[in-house]
């Protein structure tokens, strides 16, 4: 892993100034939009965000309104996406579910970001034994099956949305810590940081003013993609029986609960599946787009997670 950091570091050095200079360059937006995929990603994400915001307005029914004797109805004018095992309107549940999915993703990403950034900055900037100790801890967590950690946390705290979020966050922050530490290490060598140090600028100020802005790009990209992986992770935990508590209309839980219907009441499982897919695709495309625009190369480390 270290090597990736170092390669990333080198390129970060190479691209930092260039990137920094062009922050205000509006061509960026043009470049971003010129890639159709980015537009598609933006579109997908917007659809999900809008659904979440306007769920109560658009949804034909409440997400938890049951109608046992009209369960598993196929899509119709009344229920455009059919009804589920308890006769609830699938479309309504999906719309409300968008809120929950986004909520979870945002929360997890925010927690991982906070922990990861803090640890990464401290390790990278402090160096020495602090760095050593923190990075060892990261190594340990990385070598640890995330699923076990998540299961134990869900087990101890009881499976519900908050605890799923904690579980995914505990598993997820290490990547940020590594990337940020790597970036900090390389930025630290930069002339302007050294200069600031010599001028007696306080450490906190150096970190905030000079280092943080320089490591922001990979983190933004990683965070965007993480939004996607959190949703997939929730679905995976649901499959293992550790999903959101019923009747929460969480997509992963809906998908997992409906998994026996793939070829019978296909709407019960495939619509939540599609919702997840579109969202994950959207965030991934967005992340790719951001990366290309902000930093076309060397984001190899920003990869692969999920359960």
């Amino acid at each position: 892993m270290s090597n990736q950091d170092s390669t990333a570091n080198q390129s970060v050095i190479a691209t930092t100034r260039r990137r920094y200079r062009s922050v205000k360059n509006s061509r960026r937006l043009g470049r971003f939009l010129s890639n159709r995929l980015n537009v598609v990603g933006l579109l997908f994400v917007s659809v999900v965000v809008l659904s979440a915001i306007f769920a109560p307005v658009i949804a034909p029914e409440g997400p938890n309104e049951q109608d046992l004797f009209n369960r598993l109805d196929s899509p119709s004018a009344e229920h455009p996406m059919g009804t589920d095992q308890l006769g609830r309107d699938v479309l309504s549940r999906l719309l409300y579910g968008a809120r929950i999915s986004l909520q979870i993703s945002l929360a997890v990403v925010a927690i991982t970001l906070a922990i990861g950034t803090a640890v990464g900055l401290i390790a990278g900037y402090a160096g020495g034994w602090v760095d050593e100790a923190l990075m060892r801890f990261v190594d340990i967590l990385l070598a640890f099956p995330g699923i076990l950690l998540a299961l134990v946390i869900a087990g101890i705290l009881g499976p519900n949305l908050t605890n799923i979020m904690i579980a995914l966050a505990v598993v997820g922050w290490t990547q940020y810590a590594r990337i940020i530490r790597g970036s900090v290490l390389s930025v630290k060598q930069e002339e302007f940081v050294k200069a600031a140090q010599l001028m007696g600028v306080p450490r906190r100020r150096i970190v905030l003013r000079h280092i943080l802005p320089n490591v922001v790009t990979p983190v933004i990209v990683l965070a965007t993609m993480d939004m996607a992986y959190v949703i997939l992770g929730t679905a995976g935990l649901s499959f293992l029986g550790l999903g959101a508590q019923p009747p929460t209309p969480e997509w992963g839980t809906m998908l997992s609960q409906g998994r026996n219907f793939v070829d019978t009441a296909w709407w019960v499982v495939n619509f939540p599946g599609l919702a997840i897919m579109i969202t994950v695709l959207g965030f991934n495309l967005l992340g790719d787009g951001l990366r290309d625009v902000l930093d076309p190369r060397d984001m190899g480390d920003v990869e692969n997670k999920g359960m």
């Binding site: 049951q66 046992l68 308890l86 009881g158 499976p159 519900n160 550790l242 508590q245 019923p246």
Partner: peptide, 21 residues
């Protein structure tokens, strides 16, 4: 449990479902 939750709700009794391992 969800069906029961609905019925109990209909008679004014609130229920929180807790699925555990």
């Amino acid at each position: 449990t969800q069906a029961l939750q609905q019925w109990f709700d209909d008679i004014g009794v609130k229920v929180d479902i807790q699925v555990t391992e």
